[in-house]
């Protein structure tokens, strides 16, 4: 994060710390039917930094983040996690490698209570049974750490507001010691105080050495938490900038295709 580093090479970007990337994507391609969602994308994620992923709708941001999270399997390209090639066949594979994602649609189960959703897929058990008491205790700690207020943890998620639901999705992804945390539009439905809490959270997990990928339309958030910003356009990465070397105007030009690199 040295301000002296003013230029970004088109390939093989230097890391903020000069070290090796935590995760490295090379030539990722993905096609849905006849639609080329991704046309060969490279991206590096370093430990302890936040990469902003921006672009217009259908630029491929969500598809790229879902590939990292194992939800989509790329048609072509390589993924390296700590210098080790990985191929995720399912989100479970990615989760096992400590990659967590907050999905844009939140991926909550409406008919399960708040606690159950926070621990979905990694329920705590006592013998063959769910340890509800223990999970409630842990859930209270998890939510308190993120300054999220949910009145009743045993309420079904369908009863909650959009912001509360989003807060739960974030708490679920952030609370189990991820190495890479992907957030797809995490603040779109949040209230002012909650947005602050999420941005605070991103800065905190960065300090712990987590690599964060933030997909967002809220440009003001980018400048608060991101170290680098990657701009996507029509399924390709058209530009990558250090946050301190760019400004809102340039990013908007890049997004709409007036960048002219």
């Amino acid at each position: 994060m040295m301000a002296t580093d003013t230029s970004i090479a088109p390939e093989g970007e230097t890391s903020p710390s000069g070290g090796k990337p935590l995760m490295s994507l090379k030539g990722i391609r993905k096609t849905f039917g006849s639609h080329q969602a991704l046309r060969g994308v490279d991206l590096d994620i370093f430990a302890g930094e936040c990469v902003g992923l921006i672009g217009d709708n259908a630029a491929g941001k969500s598809t790229l983040s879902k590939i990292i999270a194992g939800t989509h399997i790329p048609d072509d390209g390589h993924m390296m996690l700590r210098d080790e090639p990985v191929r995720f066949q399912s989100p479970a594979d990615a989760r096992a490698r400590h990659i967590e994602m907050v999905y844009q649609d939140l991926s909550l189960c409406d008919h399960i209570d708040v606690v159950g959703n926070l621990f979905l897929g990694r329920e705590m058990t006592k013998g063959p049974f769910l340890d509800q008491d223990q999970m409630i205790k842990r859930a209270e700690e998890m939510l308190a750490r993120l300054e999220i207020r949910i009145p009743r943890l045993t309420a079904k998620v369908e009863k909650l507001s959009g912001g509360q639901r989003q807060a739960i999705a974030i708490a679920r992804a952030a609370s189990f010691e991820p190495d890479i945390l992907i957030m797809d539009e995490p603040t779109s439905a949040l209230a002012v105080a909650e947005v602050e809490a999420v941005l605070g959270l991103i800065n905190r997990v960065k300090e712990r050495g987590v690599g964060v990928i933030l997909v967002t339309h809220r440009m003001q958030d980018l400048f608060r938490v991101c170290d680098r910003i990657a701009v996507m356009y029509e399924g390709t990465k058209v530009a990558e900038r250090r946050t301190q070397d760019t400004n809102l105007e340039e990013l908007v030009d890049l997004i709409v295709g007036k960048g002219g690199h």
Binding site: A69, T71, P91, R95, S107, C109, D110, H111, I112, G121
Partner: peptide, 16 residues
């Protein structure tokens, strides 16, 4: 319950 409530969410959290 998770599979009936949101099958894709169940898959995404690693449930079989």
């Amino acid at each position: 319950i998770a599979c009936g409530s949101n099958l894709e969410a169940a898959r995404r959290v690693g449930m079989p």
